[in-house]
Computed example of a mutant assay.
Amino acid sequence: MILAQALDATYWGFLGRGIGAILLYAVIGILMMLVGFWAIDLTTPGKLPQMVRAGLPNAVTITAAGMLSMAFIIVIAIYVSAGSLLQGLISSLVFGLVGIIAQVAAVRLLEWVTGIDIGEVIQSEEPRAAAKVVAAAHVALGLIVAVAVF
């Protein structure tokens, strides 16, 4: 009771808006992570979720790096959002989605340029050096795209 009286009357509204904003940005972030995973799966030969569940080491490595790179992009998209809450949510969503598209396209282009047969690599039951190259490309290009969003 004493604490409630000691705080400014506008504090509770501020706190409620802040909590609401956190929850809305979290929902946007989670949705974009799902879209990012779907984009990686869509552009990768085979059923990526099944390969990950089966524990194929290269599929797990590349997927983990892809998700990390998507997180970089989404975090920066949320960080640079400005304006009202609605404007911030919309810009986060748009910048995040454009960043995800750029990320996936860049990784696929790199695989093509280097001649890596990603389908063969991710379906292998033995760890492959090429998987580390693709994973590193995901992280590096994710950082580049995230900075481009910034």
Rank of each mutant, 00 (worst) to 15 (best):
Ala39Gln: 13
Arg53Ala: 15
Asp41Arg: 06
Ile76Lys: 14
Gln87Met: 09
Met67Glu: 10
Ser84His: 08
Gly55Asp: 08
Arg53Ser: 14
Gly99Pro: 09
Asp41Phe: 00
Ile90Met: 10
Ile78Ala: 12
Ser81Leu: 03
Leu93His: 04
Val35Phe: 00
Leu97Ile: 05
Leu68Ile: 15
Val27Tyr: 10
Gly55Gln: 06
Met32Tyr: 03
Ser92Trp: 04
Pro49Ala: 01
Gly83His: 13
Pro49His: 06
Ile40Asn: 10
Met67Gly: 14
Gly18Pro: 08
Ser84Tyr: 04
Leu93Phe: 11
Thr43Asp: 08
Ile28Thr: 14
Val52Trp: 01
Gly36Lys: 06
Trp38His: 05
Phe37Cys: 09
Leu93Trp: 01
Val98Tyr: 02
Val98Ala: 10
Leu56Thr: 01
Ala71Val: 05
Gly66Cys: 11
Gln87Pro: 08
Ile78Tyr: 01
Ile30Thr: 12
Leu23Ile: 14
Ile22Val: 14
Val35Thr: 06
Val75Met: 13
Tyr25Thr: 08
Gly46Met: 00
Leu31Gly: 10
Leu34Glu: 09
Ala77Met: 09
Ile76Cys: 08
Ser84Ile: 09
Val35Ser: 04
Arg53Trp: 10
Ser91Ala: 10
Ala39His: 10
Gly20Leu: 07
Trp38Gly: 03
Met67Cys: 10
Ala59Cys: 03
Leu89Ala: 10
Ser92Pro: 07
Gly88Asn: 11
Val35Met: 03
Thr61Gly: 07
Gly66Pro: 08
Val94Ile: 12
Leu86Val: 15
Leu85Ile: 11
Leu34Ile: 08
Met67Thr: 09
Leu42His: 15
Asn58Ile: 00
Ile40Glu: 07
Ala77Val: 11
Ser81Ala: 15
Met33Cys: 14
Val94Leu: 05
Ile62Arg: 01
Gly55Met: 04
Gly20Met: 05
Pro49Cys: 01
Thr61Ile: 11
Ala54Gly: 13
Lys47Asn: 14
Gly29Arg: 01
Leu34Tyr: 08
Val80Lys: 09
Leu24Trp: 10
Leu89Pro: 10
Ala39Val: 05
Gly55Arg: 05
Leu48Tyr: 00
Asn58Ser: 03
Val60Asn: 03
Val80Phe: 05
Ile28Leu: 13
Leu42Val: 10
Ala64Ser: 13
Gly96Asp: 04
Gln87Thr: 12
Val80Trp: 02
Val98Gln: 09
Thr43Met: 13
Ser84Val: 06
Ala64Tyr: 04
Leu34Trp: 07
Leu97Glu: 01
Leu31Cys: 12
Asp41Glu: 05
Ala26Glu: 07
Ile19Phe: 12
Ala39Met: 13
Arg53Lys: 15
Met32Cys: 11
Ile19Gly: 14
Met51Glu: 05
Val52Glu: 02
Ile22Arg: 11
Ile30Pro: 03
Leu48Pro: 03
Met51Ala: 08
Gly99Thr: 09
Ala77Arg: 02
Asn58Ala: 04
Gly55Leu: 01
Ile90Ala: 14
Ser81Phe: 06
Ser91Met: 14
Met33Thr: 07
Thr43His: 10
Gly18Ser: 07
Pro45Arg: 02
Asn58Phe: 00
Leu48Thr: 03
Ile30Leu: 11
Phe95Asp: 09
Phe72Gln: 02
Asn58Cys: 03
Gln50Ile: 08
Val60Gly: 06
Pro49Val: 00
Ala54Tyr: 02
Gly66Ile: 04
Asp41Tyr: 00
Met51Thr: 02
Leu97Val: 06
Gly29Asp: 06
Pro49Leu: 02
Ala77Thr: 07
Leu24Asn: 07
Gly96Val: 01
Pro45Ser: 01
Gly18Ile: 06
